[in-house]
Design a protein around this nucleic acid. Structure first.
Length: 1187
RNA sequence: UGGUCUGUAGCUCAACGGUCAGAGCUUCUGCCUUAUACGCAGCGGGUUGUGGGUUCAAAUCCUACCAGACCAACCA
């Protein structure tokens, strides 16, 4: 135990933090904060795993501060808060980073570099910045368990994920389907949205656009169109006009989509290319784009080929809903769809009249909207473009042609143009023109992207949508609008979760299939056989009995050798086929090509080559045994080389990976390797009480956690979620490396300290508002909050050391303490109450701001300021001890209140205090309990009158300024008109504080004020408004016009009958506010209802006293400049000045006491000493320390 | 394009139906201080993004725009 409070020369937050950090680590303070709560109610927190393949930024500091402060607060509130850290290690950003490092592209994987090598690189690269992250975690004071974090690439983690997938599979929630995804034919790969959002992918291009004419068929639905048209022309043909910027999708057209509430028109006109009379349907609002004004209702009989103006006429107008299900003739009938009910008009909410014709050509294969509406109506799907980006051979004269110039062919002919020409000739095009628009391009090949149907695995989240919506209502969202708005909306419009990623570094989808030769009947060869069988693996153990394809060299050799057993069997099999179609045969050519190109061979090749000869598996594979399972890595390519023998058919793994969001969404289970281990641990920690991340995670982590929680356990995954906003630079721009406006968190912490940074981030704005990050703000926090607390502590330490105050005396009951002590304790308890409420409500910003106000306005600038003398003057007695105990309690409580947000400084402050007083056994403030407000200590009256004291002082000071009398000059009195006894009593109790603060001798009260004080009356809108309603305006005017007598009457009677618009209304005293505006002959100031007058007469006595105080002030300055100790006694000589003589004589004792002088002499002349100035007089003073 | 959030003094933020919209930072001027901190008083600074509406009363509620941010989508 230290005997003295540590005193400091200067506040150095970064230095304090280094010391505290070392202290924490030495004493395992974090671990202790958890173990000390063993057996307590757990407060469950989930750490959203960051990815360590990028450097941490300042925005990570804010979300982690948020997490940390909640966990610290809850720990102090008595909960046990375990915080398991985690690392997100899979996914595209990792892969892209590795590809950049290695200088390769995705296509090189498996060619220039083996998948295994590639994944190994990912494995090491992904934790490249782990040290930096750990460093930041330490330095910013984020308490999280970094010793046993969960890592998503870990085998155990993946095994849990597989278990989750299998659970979903068992529930029938996992299915395979086609989805329309951005696809780059040039690169032969699907693109993720991430890749599509790379800068420069959207380019301006000029495309040939066509307004195509789809010929309507007659039916009951369309009769109303034909009836009208036939009246004008008995041979009328009716067409739907649809615009497209991708004419190559027209052969795949299966539908036309219109907006149900859009107005459409049937128009009679001529085709501008063929000049044939036509009747067309399009959105009424868009007719202006296709028809000239002059031609409206023109003369149809007079029209001839070549006329500039084509006549047109609107025959009828109707809503899109009337067009539903009208059938039309296929535009380019090269291929018929195999299934579905196509060539109908559909309704879709995505149709606009912004451009085009208001009728959307719908090819379900090549657009996400198209696909959705197509599925809804069951029009089928037709994909007449292959994966190289060229038309299938079946597409007539366009067969085999590339839809865009994917091969960079210099002689490439635009197929869109040829389609346009053909349609023009066939009277099926109304307009063909070039159109400039933005279109996404592949960021690697710079070629246009196609939207293309690709196989993908989905989780049927829409099936549990209602339950998810219901569960969401029980979650406490901060801010709530994110939960109801952004998240709630997202749930309402949910689509099935596309799990598939065709990449390499990630969790493999644990689904094995037999090869799907759908057009082939194996029964021909092998009797009865189920062509497609699937199994979903849910644990490593289930791999047992499978086979691992390891003898790749033998396989490679055999497939090239026509005498090998393998080759012979394939040949025999092929010859057995009675069906002679090539696709049905086992084709070794592609495998051979692969080998010749030195590309990696995988199990899927083996499966393709001998997919029904399972006995051959054994030749190239080893069986998976327990020992294999123990050591097997659950990544690509290892799992790809695992095969199963299913009743004579080979099952191979679906090549897809699982979306990384599944990894993080499953962390509640996978972090514990549930259900393979830690079942109990998991049950105790699900669901989470609290999570927090950036608002950008709403549809990311927040969603996947929620979805998996709902689907697997029919539960929420978290009870409270706080989403923080973005951190922008000080000009409100997004921080980006490219612009160079990123804030380096390390430099910031180093320079300003973690506490100031954390405090700034939390209190500047609510965490969920995006904040503009300005270092100036941190400086201000440092100056205003930390320096102030620090100085208050230092002030305390200085005097407490002199008086040897160690809190060894008994706690003085509040009622035995002076008014001001009870006041600050009251305010302190109010603060504790408020801060507790704010923290409980996840409003740290409010909590921090409340602490700031307390420190600045109440503790430092009122309590300490007014009590200064009590600490240095007089004996170590009751009053002094009371002051010490009070200030000590404030500081100690502050350290606890501040601990969650500024953990270092708080612990430092706590340690400094407790090391001397030893009031608590805890070695750290973070092991303490959070303070509990003592209701009995809160005295609202006392707080009210202290506010009065502050207001009155402020008014007097402003009066002094107005008449230029400095505070050191005493004045005789102030005059305060008081409305009622209560106010007077209140002021009387704190009168002494006001008097010393503003340096006046007396306070007088004016109660009998009638006729003397000029009063002003104002309506109290709040109380009056509800009573008066619409009469409010007239009442307010009447009240404002009150005469002095009327005001007096109201004051006297407590009520008043007011006549407004011939109606008598009773006005209560509480309905108005009466302000003493002026006291004739006095200098007066007002604030609200409070009025203060100041007597500015300076009598000779007052002048002497003022001069004496000036002199004291100057000599104190000399003491200070001379570095005298606080207790040093001095001797003073003053060169005599006539006008100061009386002051020095009359106030000699006072002066000596104040400056601790044993003697104060006047001498005629003084050569030595220091020149000082008192009220414009200059003279010398000699101050000597008494030896 | 849709959803959500945010627009208040030069800057950062309060006020969230009720008198005249307030603090701090910033410029300048005084004052106070046996606390190297701070504070106090004054001087400036605003049609509360814009236009409508509801109300006795709107920064606050409704509505339509405008701008920014995020998320999602992307278009015929």
């Amino acid at each position: 135990m230290a005997s003295k409070y540590q005193e400091y020369n200067q506040l150095n937050l970064p230095q304090i933090e280094k010391e505290i950090l070392a202290h924490w680590e030495k004493n395992q303070a974090f671990e202790q904060s958890v173990t000390l709560r063993e057996g307590a109610t757990p407060f469950v927190f989930y750490e959203g795993p960051p990815s360590a393949n990028g450097m941490p930024g300042i925005h990570h500091v804010i979300s982690r501060t948020l997490k940390d402060l909640v966990c610290r607060y809850k720990t102090m509130s008595g909960f046990q808060v375990k915080r398991k850290g985690g690392w997100d290690t899979h996914g595209l950003p990792v892969e892209l980073g590795v590809e950049k490092t290695l200088g390769i592209t995705k296509d090189d994987i498996g060619k220039k570099i083996s998948v295994e090598e590639y994944n190994n690189t990912c494995r090491t690269e992904v934790l490249k910045y782990k040290d930096k992250w750990d460093d930041l975690t330490r330095k910013m004071g984020y308490w999280v368990d970094l010793k046993s974090p969960y890592i998503t690439f870990d085998n155990n983690y993946i095994e849990s994920l597989w278990w989750c997938v299998q659970e979903l599979y068992k529930k029938g929630l996992l299915y395979k389907s086609k989805s329309i995804q951005p696809y780059s034919p040039a690169a032969g790969t699907g693109l993720s949205s991430h890749e599509l959002n790379q800068p420069g992918t959207y380019k301006n291009v000029k495309d040939t656009t066509i307004v195509a004419m789809f010929k309507a068929l007659e039916s009951e639905n369309s009769a109303f169109l034909f009836d009208i048209a036939r009246k004008a022309d008995p041979a009328a043909e009716v067409f739907f006009m649809a615009w497209t910027t991708t004419p190559w999708t027209l052969p795949s057209n299966l539908g036309l989509t219109v907006g149900a509430n859009i107005e459409y028109a049937l128009i009679r006109t001529f085709n501008p290319y063929t000049h044939l009379p036509v009747f067309v349907v399009m959105a009424k609002d868009l007719t202006g784009k296709y028809f000239k004004k002059e031609g409206e209702d023109g003369d149809f009989s007079a029209y001839k080929e070549g006329d500039k103006v084509i006549p047109w006429q609107i025959l009828s107008v109707f809503r899109g809903s009337q067009l539903e299900n009208i059938r039309y003739e296929q535009l380019l009938p090269y291929v018929q769809p195999e299934s579905g009910d196509p060539f109908r008009v559909l309704l879709g909410d995505f149709v606009t009249t912004e451009d085009g014709t208001g009728i959307v050509h719908t090819a379900p294969a090549f657009g996400a909207d198209d696909n959705r509406v197509g599925q809804k109506y069951g029009i089928g799907i037709m994909t007449l473009v292959d994966r190289q980006g060229k038309f299938l051979d079946t597409v007539g004269e366009f067969g085999g042609r590339y839809v865009k110039n994917y091969k960079s062919d210099p002689d490439y002919k635009d197929v869109d143009v040829d389609i346009a020409v053909k349609l023009k000739k066939e009277n099926r095009a109304f307009r063909v023109e070039k159109y400039e628009h933005t279109y996404p391009h592949c960021w690697r090949t710079d070629k246009p992207v196609l939207y293309y149907p690709l196989d993908a695995w989905f989780i049927n989240t829409t099936a549990v949508k209602d339950r998810m919506v219901e569960l969401n209502k029980t979650i406490n969202w901060k801010p709530s609008s994110t939960g109801t708005g952004r998240f709630g909306n997202w749930l309402e419009n949910m689509v099935d979760w596309n799990l598939s990623r065709s990449r390499y570094w990630g969790t493999p989808l644990p689904v094995w299939n037999t090869l799907n030769h759908s057009f082939f009947s194996p029964a021909q060869v092998y009797g009865s056989f189920e062509p497609l069988t699937r199994k979903c693996i849910g644990s490593r153990a289930e791999l047992k009995g499978g086979y691992q394809f390891v003898k790749k060299e033998e396989f490679t050799r055999d497939i090239l050798d026509e005498n090998s057993e393998l080759y012979k069997k394939i040949k025999k099999y092929n010859s057995k086929l009675t069906n002679s179609r090539d696709e049905d045969r086992i084709n070794v050519a592609p495998i051979r090509t692969k080998i010749s190109k030195k590309e990696e061979v995988f199990a899927i090749d083996l499966a393709a080559a001998n997919w029904y000869y399972t006995d051959l598996i054994k030749k190239y594979c080893v069986e998976i045994t327990n020992s294999v399972i123990e050591s097997i890595d659950l990544h690509k390519p290892i799992v790809d080389d695992i095969l199963f023998d299913h009743e004579g058919a080979i099952m191979y793994r679906e090549p897809d990976l699982i979306d990384v969001w599944f990894d993080s969404g499953a962390m509640p289970y996978a972090q514990w390797h549930y259900p393979f281990e830690n079942k109990e641990e998991f049950q105790k920690s699900f669901p989470a009480d609290f999570i927090a991340e950036g608002v950008d995670q709403t549809r990311g982590w927040f969603y996947t956690l929620h979805a998996l929680g709902a689907m697997l356990f029919d539960s929420v995954a978290y009870k409270t979620v706080v989403s923080n906003g973005l951190v922008l630079d000080k000009n409100g721009n997004k921080m980006s490396k490219r612009v160079g406006n990123v804030v380096d968190p390390f430099a910031t912490l180093e320079q300003f300290g973690a506490d100031a940074t954390r405090w700034y981030l939390i209190t500047n704005a609510s965490p969920w508002d995006s904040m503009k990050f300005d270092l100036e703000g941190i400086k201000e926090v440092q100056r205003k909050l930390f320096s102030t607390v620090y100085n208050t502590y230092n002030f305390f330490a200085m005097y407490a050391n002199l008086d040897k105050f160690t809190f060894k005396e008994a706690y003085i009951p509040l009622e035995e303490r002076p008014e001001i002590d009870r006041w600050i304790i009251s305010v302190l308890n109010t603060l504790v109450k408020d801060v507790t409420a704010y923290f409980n409500d996840y409003e740290p910003t409010q909590a921090g701001r409340a602490v700031q106000t307390f420190v600045d306005e109440h503790l430092s600038n009122w309590y300490v300021r007014l009590c200064r003398r009590r600490f240095w003057k007089g004996d170590y007695g009751h009053d002094k001890i009371s002051a010490y105990q009070t200030l000590y309690e404030c500081l100690e409580t502050l350290s606890q209140l501040m601990a969650p947000v500024s953990p270092f400084f708080a612990d430092w402050l706590f340690g400094n205090l407790n090391s001397v007083s030893a009031r608590h056994a805890e070695g750290s403030v973070h092991h303490m309990n959070f303070p509990v407000a003592v209701a009995g200590a809160i005295d609202a009256d006392l707080e009210e009158r202290m506010q009065l004291a502050q207001d009155i002082s402020s008014l007097v000071l402003s009066l002094r300024k107005k008449v230029n009398i400095k505070v050191r000059q005493p004045l005789q009195k102030i005059l305060i008109p008081v409305q009622n006894v209560h106010i007077k009593e209140q002021i009387e109790k704190i009168g002494h504080l006001i008097k010393s603060e503003v340096n006046v001798k007396d306070i007088e009260y004016l109660t009998e004020t009638e006729g003397f004080i000029k009063k002003k009356i104002k309506p109290n809108y709040k109380s009056l408004g509800s009573k008066m309603g619409a009469k409010m305006k007239a009442v307010a005017a009447a009240i404002s016009a009150f005469s002095a007598a009327e005001i007096a009457s109201l004051e006297r009677e407590g009520q008043f009958n007011l006549l407004v618009e011939n109606e008598e209304l009773l006005i209560q005293l509480s309905d108005v506010e009466i302000i003493s505006e002026d006291i004739p002959g006095w200098t007066v100031a007002n604030k609200g209802a409070l009025t203060v007058a100041l007597d500015i007469t300076i009598t000779p006595e007052l002048l002497d006293e003022g001069n004496a105080r000036e002199l004291v002030n100057r000599i104190q300055k000399i003491r200070k400049d001379s570095d005298f100790e606080l207790t040093d006694r001095i001797q003073v000589k003053v060169a005599v000045i006539d006008s100061l003589k009386s002051a020095i004589i009359n106030y000699n004792d006072y002066i000596c006491t104040e400056i601790l002088a044993d003697s104060l002499e006047m001498v005629p002349e003084l050569q030595d000493g220091i020149e000082i100035e008192v009220n414009d007089l200059t003279f010398n003073v000699l101050v000597n320390k008494k030896s």
